[in-house]
Design a protein around this nucleic acid. Structure first.
Lengths: 341, 341
DNA sequence: CCTTATTGTCGAAACGTTTCTACAAAAATT
DNA sequence: AATTTTTGTAGAAACGTTTCGACAATAAGG
């Protein structure tokens, strides 16, 4: 906290500037916002005064008048998951380019925390939101009285603005990869069947199996949540069966970590005794021995496009280039966690 | 954006509440803020009106009057590094308990971005800041005209409020561990010698060597930056020497990743051909084969204490329990990346 | 019973902007 | 030269709160 080095610790306002420059307050405001016509002469006078007094706008006061805060909130399920922070990075990049401020908010996958956010004071203060939802009831998000773009997770049948990846294709590719290596008994570990990320990933897996004429076995579908613990327990259970699968597809990064832990614990070798495909790429996936076959998703791009869409909505930009729902393509990254059978 | 389902899309203000309850505006405000004396009768009238109209306070307007926004900004060097996000988690936990909002800001280790933040409008709007600095000039941070707590990185000689870990001890322990395993030719890979995190870590390394009567060899100190690339290049260089070290101490998580990449590339085995200690613990460090010996830091605690300190400063709490500079203890986590010689 | 203290409420000013209306001066058109 | 248009500026109202001073009504003290 700065000590009171100067007696008159007066914060300089637009009024001070106007007096110092010898013009009206409104004139200063117009110069500052580059509005209307202002003679070069006065503009220079004002700019000089701003410089000399070290004026910086009180954006809170401005917000009150305009109703715009230039703050947007980014809601992620978990701040510590690098998959989500990569999305946030993309959002931030565009936002700061356009002089918007971003507030990061972690819902911790709790819908109650989301609700509290949007029904509270902050919900009134923001200009818009980019949300990775924690709740599969589309109506809730639709009724937020601010511009909203949904990212990553999608509720099917919703007509909201959204940016997602092609989960079905990703899942299909990762399963197909296992099939082409000769595997027939393939398990999937996935999270809940609420959002597209759950439903489409399981569907992609099933469709791949069907397409190659392989029986879809319900006991091979380990559906639970998206956290490491579920990946761990499911894998243990799978490996302890009489007829264990020869390959596992873990449908997100945390599940994959849990899965690997369990496999290690059992003392068997990935890529040899058991094959594995993950989903989200990361440093970890590349560094493990063997490195994991995954799908590359343009996470940062997802954030960027989401933010650009949001800006289009806020500014009521008619000639936006984006469809309501943007689906990004994915690409298989072949590594060494899949062994031929 | 909510469509105009209702004709009069009027946002309900404190004035509406006052009219509905039949009291003065000021009375409503007093009820809302729990100030002064209000008769039970009117309090109930007001609360009922608030409920019925669904009033929610416009905190921007309030901020303008009070000069307090209940927003604090958390500045981290990189939003995607889980070490930093773990700190942020701790901050958020305390902040939300106390009804403060947090804005996350990534400086990308650029002092210019920091400067822009604090000299700009937002710098005026916030009530305080928690900063992992990108700049080693203490004067800069001291002159921020808001309460500030420095986290993780510290500028020695500074008298600012700060929460850090005991870097010297951590570094000493990690080096000692290698010495006790019989290593004599030990290299360190570290970032710049600006903050405590660089200086103390190198010093801890040197002190451990000296203490065991081992020669400190300048060519074994690979000083650069804190990023993966530096870890990678340094390791390659070390391994290609005529007399390569038998052990490497990588002084942060990214350096350690780069180091491992290089070692893998050379086709040699960690824990056997070369020993390795890292610094920051993480999922990765546990999952690698072998898992890496590191030091456990209470990252979340660091964030929590930082936020509690900040609150004390903001509220001018005299009887704070925290010293100006809080140093947290560390603990060695022995895994399997260190081999006996 | 009169004075003084306390309690609860009101009205109005203030916070620092933006923006609308009005209007004078200058320029352009007759 | 008289009128109209354009240009630049000023003044004031408004945004939704908080908070201060004023003031009745009631309670307490003498």
């Amino acid at each position: 906290m700065k000590e009171d080095t100067m007696k008159t610790n007066h914060v300089v306002t637009i009024k001070d500037v106007s007096e110092h420059a010898g013009v009206a307050i409104s004139t200063v405001s117009r110069v500052l916002n580059g509005l209307d016509r202002v003679s070069d002469e006065t503009r220079i006078k004002v700019e000089k005064a701003v410089e000399e007094l070290g004026y910086v706008k009180n954006s809170l006061a401005a917000s009150m008048k305009t109703g715009k805060s230039r703050i947007i909130v980014v809601v992620v399920p978990d701040i510590i998951n690098e998959y989500y922070t990569a999305v946030v990075r993309g959002v931030e990049e565009i936002a700061s380019q356009e002089d918007y401020y971003t507030m990061l908010f972690s819902s911790r996958d709790s819908h109650r925390r989301e609700e509290k956010l949007f029904s509270g004071e902050l919900g009134r203060a923001i200009d818009g939101a980019i949300i990775i939802p924690a709740y599969d009831e589309l109506d809730y998000y639709r009724n937020i009285s601010k511009p909203v773009v949904i990212i990553d997770r999608y509720v099917s049948g919703s007509d909201m603005h959204a940016v997602v990846i092609d989960n079905h294709k990703a899942s299909y590719l990762l399963t197909e990869e296992l099939i082409l290596a000769g595997h027939r008994n393939i398990a999937i570990i996935s999270g809940a069947q609420e959002f597209n990320i759950g439903i489409d990933r399981v569907k992609g897996y099933r469709d791949a199996l069907k397409n190659y004429g392989i029986e879809v076995r319900p006991e091979n579908e380990m559906i639970g949540n998206w956290y490491q613990e579920h990946g761990y327990r499911s894998t243990l259970e799978l490996l302890e069966r009489e007829d264990p699968p020869s390959a596992i597809f873990a449908a997100n990064n945390l599940l994959c970590i849990g899965c690997i832990k369990a496999i290690r614990e059992k003392g068997i070798t990935i890529g040899k005794d058991i094959s594995l495909t993950g989903f989200d790429d990361s440093e970890v996936a590349q560094l493990l021995e063997p490195d994991i076959t995954v799908v590359r998703q343009e996470t940062a791009t997802m954030g960027k496009i989401g933010m650009m869409k949001l800006l289009d909505i806020i500014n009521r930009n008619e000639k936006t280039v984006y469809p309501k729902k943007v689906v990004l393509d994915v690409e298989l990254i072949r590594r060494h966690s899949v062994g031929k059978i």
